[in-house]
Nucleic acid binder design. Sequence first.
DNA 1: ATTGAACTGACATTATAATGTGGTTTTATT
DNA 2: AATAAAACCACATTATAATGTCAGTTCAAT
Lengths: 75, 75
Amino acid sequence: MSVQSIKELGRKIRLRRKTLKITQPDLAQLAGISVNTLYKIERGVANPTLKIIDKLLDVLGLELSLAIKSIDYTD
Amino acid sequence: MSVQSIKELGRKIRLRRKTLKITQPDLAQLAGISVNTLYKIERGVANPTLKIIDKLLDVLGLELSLAIKSIDYTD
DNA sequence: ATTGAACTGACATTATAATGTGGTTTTATT
DNA sequence: AATAAAACCACATTATAATGTCAGTTCAAT
């Protein structure tokens, strides 16, 4: 489940938020960022900084990992 | 191998660059970013945007993935 | 030891991410 | 259907990431 794109990351953040049943305003407050920023990230129209992503993933109980790219034969 | 911190990410980027035996100037050019930015990222004194990270990981043949945080009993 | 390239660093400038505000639209609940 | 909350959106402002420049330092190769 790689983060191919910024849009994909946004989708996953939203999905996780929905799973946890919290609203954008609540998540934004918990993460200490503005709803505006969260909204843009979920929509994939943002280019967020790592700090912002870190804060969000922290609250969402998610984490990023780094791995050597695997070859995708479906491309 | 989670990206616990920005510093950790920087270390891993540098390590991968060394493994591939390319210089900072070369990697920066290949990724289309400034050496200044790369230098800061490797040192862990930057708060880079996802686009910048994406460009770097692309060249380095690395990728980020997102996963539900596992419990770390060593903390 | 000398030379050249890579690396580190400070600083000013430019580009842009993040925020704040004030709306409109959508969704959910009664 | 009415109401309230959430989600969406535009835009101005503020904060800061990214760049460019120049200089000093470290490192590698000869």
